[in-house]
Computed example of a mutant assay.
Amino acid sequence: MSTLAESREVASGYRPGRTLPLRVELVRQLKRRRTLVMFGMLAALPVVLLVAFQVGGTPGGNSNRVSLMDTATVSGANFAAVNLFAAAGFLLVIPVALFFGDTIASEANWSSLRYLLAAPVPRARLLWSKLVVALGLSLAAFVLLPVVALVVGTVAYGWGPLQLPVGGALSTGTAAQRLAVVVVYVFVSQLVTAGLAFWLSTRTDAPLGAVGGAVGLTIVGQVLDEVTALGDWRDFVPAHWLYAWTDAVQPQLEWGRMIPGTAISVTYALVLFALAFRGFARKDIVS
């Protein structure tokens, strides 16, 4: 009995919950080149669109139907909304897949994973720290894009209400609230990609495999949503609800599509995160 008790003794002052603090992991990730490059790309997108509009002229004019893109040059708020519309389909998938898919797989690729666990950092603690930091970086990326777009758009087109494609306008205060709703929903809708990338990161030692796999499966989901023959089965495809946030840029805020879209995305994400924790707890770490 005494031998068993002695084998369970740990070093004085050791607290599993204090290993690998979030601050340390956050600083590590912020110093990585891929993080800086990704934030730089997102910050550059509004400038690229601004140059495109300056060179190509006012958007729209080729159709009798007015879309959100046609109102891009009306005000800074409209310019920010158009940037979200342009990026939500694919561009915003990349930082999520990168920040989550490059978590555990990169440590394994560098052969530092086993040394982290020997520090010792409990496996659940390691995953939790990586997960929280990846969530924080992804959210920061989603906030960065509309904020930069709002600044660039305001400088170029002035500060004003959000003009709606269907007619009418939202005051600046209401527009800010609606854009915040849009950012939150788009972020939540990408949690499926986050879960896929995180789970794959615990299954492979190749970061590009985890990132590419998550992006690829996300694209497959978007393709499946275009298959109308699937009928109501498309409701269970997360991509089916990807643009439900457009209900927030209407005269009256509608939740009818955003609520089921949120439920679908969160459900898939929780299952994938649970699979990642369960599989990693039993995995034989050799890298």
Rank of each mutant, 00 (worst) to 15 (best):
M1A: 12
M1E: 13
T3P: 01
L4F: 14
R8E: 13
V10R: 00
Y14L: 05
Y14V: 06
R15A: 08
P21S: 00
R23E: 08
E25Q: 06
K31D: 09
R32Q: 11
R32D: 05
R33T: 11
R34C: 01
M38N: 05
M41N: 10
A43C: 11
A43M: 07
V48I: 14
V48R: 01
L49K: 04
Q54H: 08
Q54D: 06
T58E: 04
P59H: 10
G60Q: 08
N62V: 08
N64S: 15
S67D: 08
S67G: 14
M69L: 15
M69T: 14
D70I: 00
V74P: 00
S75L: 10
G76V: 09
A80S: 11
F85R: 10
F85D: 06
A86T: 01
A87N: 06
A87Y: 00
F90S: 03
L91M: 05
L92W: 02
V93D: 06
I94K: 06
V96H: 06
A97R: 02
L98D: 01
G101P: 03
G101Y: 02
D102K: 12
W110N: 11
R114L: 11
R114H: 12
V121A: 03
R123Q: 12
A124F: 10
S129A: 14
V133Y: 00
A140K: 07
A149S: 11
A149H: 05
V151K: 02
V151T: 05
A156Y: 05
Y157G: 02
G160N: 02
P161N: 14
P161A: 14
L164R: 03
V166C: 02
V166L: 12
G167M: 06
G168V: 14
L170Y: 07
G173S: 08
V181D: 10
L191F: 11
F198Y: 03
W199G: 12
W199F: 15
S201V: 09
T202W: 06
D205I: 04
A206I: 15
P207K: 09
P207E: 15
L208I: 14
G209Q: 13
A210L: 07
A210D: 03
A214G: 05
V215F: 09
I219G: 04
Q222W: 06
Q222R: 02
D225L: 02
T228H: 13
L230G: 00
A239G: 05
W245D: 01
D247I: 05
D247N: 12
Q250F: 04
Q252D: 14
L253K: 04
M258Y: 05
P260Q: 07
G261F: 05
A263D: 04
V266F: 07
V271I: 11
F273H: 08
A274P: 02
R282L: 15
K283R: 15
D284C: 10
D284P: 12
